[in-house]
Design a protein around this nucleic acid. Structure first.
Lengths: 355, 355
DNA sequence: TTGTAGGCGTTATCAA
DNA sequence: TTGATAACGCCTACAA
């Protein structure tokens, strides 16, 4: 009786089961359960009751195959253990899960091979959209993505490509930092940039040069160093900065990890922070922790706070909007950042002694 | 010519397209691409080339519907912004993504309603398995899960239920902490437990009572307090402990957040740590950060380190094993923890002054 | 070794 | 308002 060509059975009740039990057709049952199309109230009641009784659960898979909408989104992050990213992912999740989407979360580890593989896998899974958090898009990845489902970029944006983008206001961030240091009396301010493949890093570097010039501060040879966001690059940069003539009185680091390692290196050379040199970070990666750690008399790092959760929420909203109306103009949003002044920035040594 | 009842077309090439282009049947194409079943080398070449030319990508959705295996896993965590969880998720991801699985990651926020909703949604998506990280299973969730796809529990385990479980060795953890404090001379040691619905919290509480008794230390009324893992419970607990007679000389907190807040409260009452009272945490939530922060002369919190990544990896391996062989005996693994002695634990005040 | 012929569970079209 | 029917894209038992 049973067909011979059967796939392994699910064990779950299906529309057909409900149809049989309630004596109606699958179409009617489908309409009743999905809530679209006409179905008489009395039959609807019966169908819902039967579904309940049989413990019916829809197969999102089958629905997705039929409707060509999976109600899933892919999220790529560089490294979920970097405190910056969970906060962003949480913001995304809050917004899209309320809209019925579920997230595939993937780690790229900053590897372009892995990025490619993951994008391919997500496309094979027919995600309705992709959110790329701090991803530098490789040429291959780009080919995979365009044409393709909607894609929203957070933090980093792809070069020469008009796409939805949500990021921090890097110009403001640098202006805040330099304004703070300049106000304290610093004129010799060095900058450890992020890797040049990162659009965020490039924007900050350009902003640094522009603002320094606006403030009338020279940028001597050696003051601008390219690092890679890793703590280790902080150590190398610090060594080089100590050999600069004149020696900088303040250093902006690409992020907080780098900043802490710079401080370590300076201490190792017998220099105190901020007594001899001020150091500022970026991201406020340890935000909550610094506050919590106040109890341990920790010094706090002066740094820029990113609106992490809001970045995620905005990206999610941009995605939902794009899914709803694919043809609207791309949105590019910059969110304001904050300056968190703590204990690693102070007056330059010459002023402190002379004043 | 085209059938009237067409669903919105994918736009992507399908097996049928390749079959037509290469002049073979869909089955042969399927066998060639999926790599199972026989197909002559020469035809296989042709098929692969055609697939390449047409930019063919498999539809994981269709495959999943047909094979009843989605190659996806669901992961539930309480709060992805708690540093403990990303590390565990990363461990899981490393292992399962190598095996071809993709993760749905969901935040429950410790809300049982949300836990239920998410489990339902993941089951609707036909995940092949579920990994529950630090989840207290509500009665409704339990009904949803059993019978159901394999489920592996990390950190917390469901009561009265034999299921795959990976967790830290809580008995060892408490023994390490109490051994450390006892060795320093402490006898009056209080314990701020986690919420009793958490199996981990219960295990630690029981271990505390057992070890204290083994060490011959009394546990006066008021020394054992139930908190909720939130920092705020640390403050409340500290207030109550200060009223205990005799006052404890050391406090074990449910986790690092609680521990820091206890220290804050003690400081607010003019007591120093560890001078007047020693305080220990749990989880090493700030692990990397404390190390990095060494440069800022932060005091470090004495705490228990969890093998976070390893917990994730072990859970993932347990899941893969279970998927491969559903009938084998459940595995329950305890991973060893470490004791990280830093600056918040020291000799009790009476010894320091008398010695 | 290859092709035929369903069917996985759903939705959508059309006719009744 | 309802039901028959055909897809969505893939896999697979069986026949050839």
């Amino acid at each position: 009786m049973k067909p011979v060509h059967a796939a392994p059975p699910t064990g779950r009740a299906t529309l057909a089961d409900i149809a049989r039990e309630s004596g109606m057709s699958r179409s009617t049952v489908s309409r009743a359960l999905a809530g679209n199309g006409y179905v008489s109230p009395v039959k609807k009641q019966l169908i819902l009751a039967t579904a309940e009784r049989l413990g019916y659960r829809v197969s999102t898979l089958a629905r997705a195959l039929r409707t060509q909408r999976s109600m899933t989104l892919g999220v790529l992050v560089a490294d979920i253990t970097n405190p910056l990213f969970p906060a962003i992912v949480k913001g995304i999740d809050e917004v899209v899960s309320a809209a019925g989407y579920t997230l595939f979360l993937c780690n790229t580890d900053e590897k372009s091979r892995r990025q490619q593989t993951l994008i391919r896998s997500l496309l094979d899974r027919q995600v309705d959209g992709l959110i790329m958090v701090s991803q530098t898009l490789s040429a291959e990845s780009r080919k995979l993505l365009f044409p393709g489902p909607p894609c929203v970029f957070v933090n980093r944006r792809p070069a020469r490509l008009s796409a939805d983008y949500i990021g921090p206001d890097n110009l403001q961030a640098i202006a805040l930092l330099l304004g703070h240091l300049h106000g304290l009396g610093h004129r010799r301010i060095a900058f450890i940039a992020g890797p040049s493949h990162s659009s965020t890093a490039r924007e900050r570097k350009d902003a640094y040069l522009a603002q320094m010039s606006r403030l009338g501060c020279a940028v001597p040879k050696g003051y601008l160093i390219e690092g890679d966001y890793q703590a280790s690059s902080g150590r190398r940069a610090a060594e080089r900065l100590l050999n600069c003539v004149p020696r900088p009185s303040a250093v902006l680091a690409a992020n907080d990890f780098v900043a802490l390692e710079v401080i370590n290196a300076l201490n190792a050379h017998g220099l105190s922070v901020p007594g001899d040199i001020s150091v500022c970070g970026f991201d406020d990666a340890f935000g909550v922790h610094f506050t919590a750690l106040a109890s341990l008399q920790a010094k706090g790092l002066t740094t820029v706070t990113q609106p992490k959760r809001e970045l995620g929420q905005a990206a999610a909203r941009a995605m939902l909007m794009r899914l709803d109306q694919p043809q609207t103009a791309v949105c590019q949003t910059l969110l304001p950042v904050g300056l968190q002044i703590r204990d690693t920035s102070g007056e330059p040594a010459e002023m402190a002694t002379s004043g």
